[in-house]
């Protein structure tokens, strides 16, 4: 295959529109929005750290240790990158960041950015529905079986080429899953936000746990869906790095330059 950088006759390549402008905006807006939602969520979570790691009936400790919210900066970190603060005893230290005692600030940010998260999510789903792009995202009937082949292929355990289309079955399952996770984020979020006036919503989660209130269950789901989002993020970034520059460029520019011969198969 000819390299991209060489000047070649114009008709050897064609431009392929991989991602429409709207999809690219919906996609990238999530980056600052989810970052701010998770960051402000941590500021809120700090006030009531209920998630603990338990094993064999023992409480090993909180999921995030206290030191995680306000970690001391190691000596080798330049001072301008650190934050001055005091510990509970009143001694001054330099910290890497401070996420303690910021509940009010966290709530204010969370209930501001939540609007962007909601509006962006609704517009994205509407776009998928009306543009017909949902056909590329929604898994097909044999998607589960095919996705196993994809995973084996990615782990270099399955060598045969995979069927060529925009999203493979594993991607379809992941992307549909992340839309459903977004919906669960919204539902559990509003359920926690308005458990009295809009109690019909929190009542969806009633009875899932015999000892806890529906509110507590909704909080639990809201937290673990966030963790699942982070898990998706790690895998997603890993796959993008593996797929390489042209794939990443496609999500920024919308276009890919493809061999004329290859394009016929697309």
């Amino acid at each position: 295959m000819t390299s991209d950088t060489q000047e070649t006759p114009r008709d050897e390549y064609v431009l392929v529109n991989k991602h429409p402008l709207a999809i690219r905006w919906f996609h990238w807006i999530n980056f600052p929005v989810l970052f701010l939602m998770i960051w402000s969520g941590v500021l809120i979570y700090w006030a009531n750290r209920v998630m603990h790691i338990r094993a064999f009936g023992h409480d090993i400790g909180p999921l995030f240790p206290d030191s995680w919210y306000q970690p001391m900066a190691p000596k080798w970190v330049p001072t301008w990158l650190t934050i001055a603060g005091t510990d509970d005893a009143g001694t001054a230290h330099q910290y890497l960041w401070n996420m303690s005692y910021r509940l009010a600030e966290g709530m204010a940010w969370h209930f501001t950015i939540a609007w962007l998260f909601t509006i962006n999510g609704i517009l994205y789903v509407l776009y998928l529905a009306f543009s017909g792009a949902w056909r590329q995202v929604l898994p097909r009937r044999n998607a589960f079986k095919e996705s196993i082949l994809v995973i084996l292929h990615d782990l270099y355990l399955y060598r045969k080429p995979l069927p060529v289309r925009k999203y493979n079955a594993a991607q379809q399952i992941a992307y549909t899953g992340v839309i459903l996770m977004g919906a669960l984020m919204f539902i559990t979020g509003v359920a926690i936000y308005k458990p009295s006036d809009q109690s019909w919503l929190v009542q969806i989660f009633a009875g899932l746990d015999r000892h806890e209130t529906a509110y507590t269950v909704a909080k639990f789901l809201h937290f673990w869906t966030t963790m699942a989002f982070l898990g998706f993020f790690v895998v997603h970034v890993g796959q993008v790095m593996k797929a390489g520059w042209k794939n990443f460029r496609g999500m920024v520019t919308g276009y890919d330059l493809v061999d004329r011969e290859e394009a016929i198969n697309l």
């Binding site: 950088t5 520019t253 330059l257």
Partner: peptide, 18 residues
């Protein structure tokens, strides 16, 4: 879409998008 193009075209699109 599917218009014949050169790597130069792609670079121009890239520059603008980035």
């Amino acid at each position: 879409v599917m218009e014949p193009a050169s790597p130069k075209d792609m670079r121009r699109i890239s520059r603008r998008s980035f």
